[in-house]
Design a protein around this nucleic acid. Structure first.
Lengths: 222, 222
DNA sequence: GCAAAAGTGTTTAATATACACCCATGA
DNA sequence: TCATGGGTGTATATTAAACACTTTTGC
């Protein structure tokens, strides 16, 4: 890995100029029938007034995963029990007009029932947007969101994806709703039930969700 | 992305200490029946005498993709026509004892017939190793290779993977050999042929490969 | 009793797997 | 002529997809 440099001091001589290393967090949740993503409105230039993926800079003694976790907690108040996965690193020298910013992007999945929609602190507005009604985005964040969505759809069949978006127990309709929101298309009720039960990824509980209509049996991930 | 910092200058005040940004390239090729990876022997501490994934540091006006491409060319002499994909970024603060090195890892696939196994320049030994007979590795490179192999196996059904590992034309046995080398298990000859022809990813040419035995028809990617 | 969501099976199509022998060539 | 890799087909199992009506509850 270090053919040209005997140590990191000689590296700094070659590498003039600041490179800032950031972690951005694409936070997804499913609200009703809609896949939503958390964005913040930029209060200053560049891209003032546009919306951006929340993120922050790497600190000296943390990994990028730590940075992302810390950012997510600051933005959403969500502490544990979420799923966080690295999506990729964006490093185009011109992606940030202020200077060199290399960003590693993470996708986080949070259970909407656990959300305390953080008050808009220090002049930064925070809001959820449906993935199919995104506002004007800052930087290359449109591209990043597109890649994050691709990742999410591919990853759907990992048990943990829907697990992270639902509470401890859930009805099969709720689980199907999560899949539909992510894929953006309807799924046959009977085939879905068959598939998900045959896979063994969920097991039934004794509970029922009562509501306006016929009660639905509750399941949990196994 | 920049809630806490008005500009990158204020970032540098917080972010004391050097963070070096590198791109490492896991270069795969298939030689005969074996999946091979390119490694270099470290000539200095730390991990002197162990083998490492080739890589280099990000330069001021290039992207990490550019860095990786440049490194691959320097190590293998391979210029165009290879496949390069980002695998992930490793950022554990303790992963390099010399200081803070964050590495974005790429996987590259090169056609073994195009290789000019670069002479061991400036005291650095370069060698191909079969993935199932790896030497002692430096840093966290064992983990990185493991993840790269996982990526490669998942990505196999993208046409481009085998495309990058073979020449312009190839026999179906050669194509199957690539799949077997990557998956590490035998594949039924007839089923493979059926599947690959039905998928439309290859089409036949008029050429034949003659050798010691019955000539084999040549195919190319479509 | 009616509106609304829960729950339930069968048929058909597509895809994947297992498996063995003859063919064409160079040496 | 023989050793070697090239080339071929069928039967079975598994998986995916299409599709409509009855049940249970709250109001």
């Amino acid at each position: 890995m270090t053919k040209q440099y005997k140590d990191l001091t000689s590296y700094t001589e070659v590498h003039q100029g600041v490179v800032a290393l950031a972690a951005d967090v694409v936070t997804f949740t499913v609200l009703g029938e809609s896949l939503q993503v958390l964005l913040i409105e930029r209060g200053s230039q560049p891209f003032k007034g546009r919306w951006a993926i929340p993120g922050g800079f790497l600190r000296k003694i943390e990994s990028l995963e730590d940075t992302a976790r810390r950012e997510l907690r600051e933005e959403t108040g969500v502490g544990e029990g979420f799923l966080m996965t690295q999506i990729g690193t964006w490093s185009d020298p011109k992606r940030d007009p202020r200077g060199r910013v290399v960003t590693t992007v993470f996708a986080a999945l949070v259970d909407s029932s656990e959300l305390k929609p953080k008050a808009d602190t220090d002049a930064a507005k925070v809001a959820w947007f449906p993935m199919d009604e995104l506002p004007q985005l800052a930087f290359d964040h449109k591209d990043i969101l597109s890649r994050a969505l691709t990742w999410l759809r591919r990853a759907l069949y990992d048990t943990r994806v829907a697990d992270a978006l639902l509470g401890e127990t859930f009805t099969l309709s709720e689980l199907r709703g999560v899949h539909e929101a992510i894929l953006g298309e309807p799924i046959d009720k009977r085939n879905f039930r068959k598939r998900v039960l045959a896979s063994g990824m969920v097991k039934e509980t004794k509970g029922y969700r009562t509501g306006a209509h016929r009660p639905a049996q509750l399941y949990k991930f196994s």
